[in-house]
Deep mutational scan, measured.
Amino acid sequence: RLHIEVEGTELMKKLVEEAKRRNLNVRAKVENGKWIIEID
């Protein structure tokens, strides 16, 4: 499991799109103003 903290929506969208393209499980949520992304 990969755990990433990202500031900025554009970067988050790119990460999520790339993960979906590779058929990975992606969860994204906002915590303290940062995107928290978990990829399995």
Score class of each variant (00 low, 15 high):
residue 1 R to D: 08
residue 1 R to P: 13
residue 2 L to N: 04
residue 2 L to V: 12
residue 2 L to H: 08
residue 2 L to P: 07
residue 2 L to T: 06
residue 3 H to T: 15
residue 3 H to E: 10
residue 3 H to K: 10
residue 3 H to R: 15
residue 3 H to P: 07
residue 3 H to A: 06
residue 3 H to W: 14
residue 3 H to L: 14
residue 4 I to Y: 13
residue 4 I to R: 03
residue 4 I to W: 10
residue 4 I to V: 07
residue 4 I to G: 04
residue 4 I to Q: 04
residue 5 E to I: 15
residue 5 E to F: 11
residue 5 E to L: 11
residue 5 E to R: 08
residue 5 E to W: 12
residue 6 V to D: 02
residue 6 V to L: 06
residue 6 V to Y: 04
residue 6 V to H: 04
residue 6 V to Q: 03
residue 7 E to D: 11
residue 7 E to H: 12
residue 7 E to L: 14
residue 7 E to P: 05
residue 7 E to F: 14
residue 7 E to I: 14
residue 7 E to N: 13
residue 8 G to H: 12
residue 8 G to A: 12
residue 8 G to R: 11
residue 8 G to M: 10
residue 8 G to D: 15
residue 8 G to P: 04
residue 8 G to L: 13
residue 9 T to Y: 15
residue 9 T to C: 13
residue 9 T to R: 11
residue 9 T to L: 14
residue 9 T to P: 10
residue 9 T to G: 07
residue 9 T to I: 14
residue 9 T to M: 14
residue 10 E to P: 04
residue 10 E to I: 07
residue 10 E to A: 12
residue 10 E to V: 07
residue 10 E to H: 08
residue 10 E to M: 09
residue 11 L to G: 05
residue 11 L to N: 10
residue 11 L to W: 11
residue 11 L to V: 10
residue 11 L to Q: 13
residue 11 L to T: 11
residue 11 L to A: 13
residue 12 M to A: 10
residue 12 M to Q: 02
residue 12 M to E: 01
residue 12 M to I: 07
residue 12 M to K: 02
residue 13 K to S: 07
residue 13 K to W: 14
residue 13 K to A: 08
residue 13 K to R: 13
residue 13 K to N: 08
residue 14 K to G: 04
residue 14 K to F: 12
residue 14 K to M: 11
residue 14 K to W: 14
residue 14 K to R: 12
residue 14 K to T: 06
residue 14 K to P: 01
residue 14 K to N: 05
residue 14 K to D: 04
residue 14 K to L: 12
residue 15 L to M: 07
residue 15 L to P: 00
residue 15 L to F: 10
residue 16 V to S: 03
residue 16 V to N: 01
residue 16 V to E: 02
residue 16 V to W: 07
residue 16 V to F: 07
residue 16 V to I: 09
residue 16 V to Q: 03
residue 16 V to Y: 08
residue 16 V to M: 08
residue 17 E to W: 11
residue 17 E to Y: 11
residue 17 E to D: 12
residue 17 E to I: 09
residue 17 E to M: 12
residue 18 E to N: 06
residue 18 E to H: 09
residue 18 E to F: 11
residue 18 E to V: 07
residue 18 E to S: 08
residue 18 E to G: 05
residue 18 E to I: 10
residue 18 E to Q: 09
residue 18 E to L: 11
residue 18 E to A: 12
residue 18 E to T: 05
residue 19 A to N: 01
residue 19 A to P: 00
residue 19 A to D: 00
residue 19 A to C: 14
residue 19 A to Y: 13
residue 19 A to S: 02
residue 20 K to P: 01
residue 20 K to L: 14
residue 20 K to I: 13
residue 20 K to N: 05
residue 20 K to T: 09
residue 20 K to D: 02
residue 20 K to A: 07
residue 20 K to S: 06
residue 20 K to M: 12
residue 21 R to K: 11
residue 21 R to N: 08
residue 21 R to F: 06
residue 21 R to G: 05
residue 22 R to N: 12
residue 22 R to F: 08
residue 22 R to Y: 11
residue 23 N to D: 05
residue 23 N to S: 08
residue 23 N to H: 13
residue 23 N to W: 07
residue 23 N to Y: 05
residue 23 N to F: 10
residue 23 N to Q: 08
residue 23 N to I: 05
residue 23 N to P: 02
residue 23 N to L: 07
residue 23 N to A: 06
residue 24 L to R: 04
residue 24 L to N: 03
residue 24 L to I: 05
residue 24 L to G: 02
residue 24 L to S: 02
residue 24 L to V: 06
residue 24 L to Y: 07
residue 24 L to F: 07
residue 25 N to Y: 11
residue 25 N to E: 08
residue 25 N to A: 11
residue 25 N to Q: 12
residue 26 V to F: 07
residue 26 V to Q: 00
residue 26 V to T: 01
residue 26 V to S: 01
residue 27 R to Y: 14
residue 27 R to F: 12
residue 27 R to Q: 12
residue 27 R to S: 14
residue 27 R to K: 11
residue 27 R to I: 14
residue 27 R to W: 13
residue 28 A to G: 03
residue 28 A to E: 02
residue 28 A to K: 03
residue 29 K to H: 15
residue 29 K to E: 06
residue 29 K to T: 13
residue 29 K to R: 14
residue 29 K to I: 11
residue 29 K to A: 06
residue 29 K to L: 06
residue 29 K to Y: 15
residue 29 K to Q: 07
residue 29 K to G: 04
residue 30 V to E: 15
residue 30 V to F: 15
residue 30 V to S: 13
residue 30 V to A: 13
residue 30 V to M: 15
residue 30 V to K: 15
residue 30 V to D: 05
residue 31 E to N: 06
residue 31 E to S: 08
residue 31 E to D: 06
residue 31 E to V: 14
residue 31 E to T: 07
residue 31 E to P: 00
residue 32 N to P: 01
residue 32 N to M: 04
residue 32 N to R: 05
residue 32 N to S: 06
residue 32 N to F: 05
residue 32 N to G: 09
residue 33 G to I: 02
residue 33 G to H: 04
residue 33 G to S: 03
residue 33 G to W: 02
residue 33 G to M: 03
residue 33 G to V: 00
residue 34 K to P: 00
residue 34 K to N: 04
residue 34 K to M: 10
residue 34 K to A: 04
residue 35 W to R: 00
residue 35 W to F: 05
residue 35 W to T: 01
residue 35 W to I: 06
residue 36 I to L: 06
residue 36 I to F: 06
residue 36 I to P: 00
residue 36 I to M: 05
residue 36 I to H: 06
residue 37 I to Q: 00
residue 37 I to T: 01
residue 37 I to K: 00
residue 37 I to V: 07
residue 37 I to A: 01
residue 38 E to T: 13
residue 38 E to D: 10
residue 38 E to R: 04
residue 38 E to W: 12
residue 38 E to N: 04
residue 39 I to W: 05
residue 39 I to H: 01
residue 39 I to N: 00
residue 39 I to R: 00
residue 39 I to Q: 02
residue 40 D to T: 12
residue 40 D to K: 06
residue 40 D to V: 11
residue 40 D to P: 02
residue 40 D to A: 09
residue 40 D to G: 13
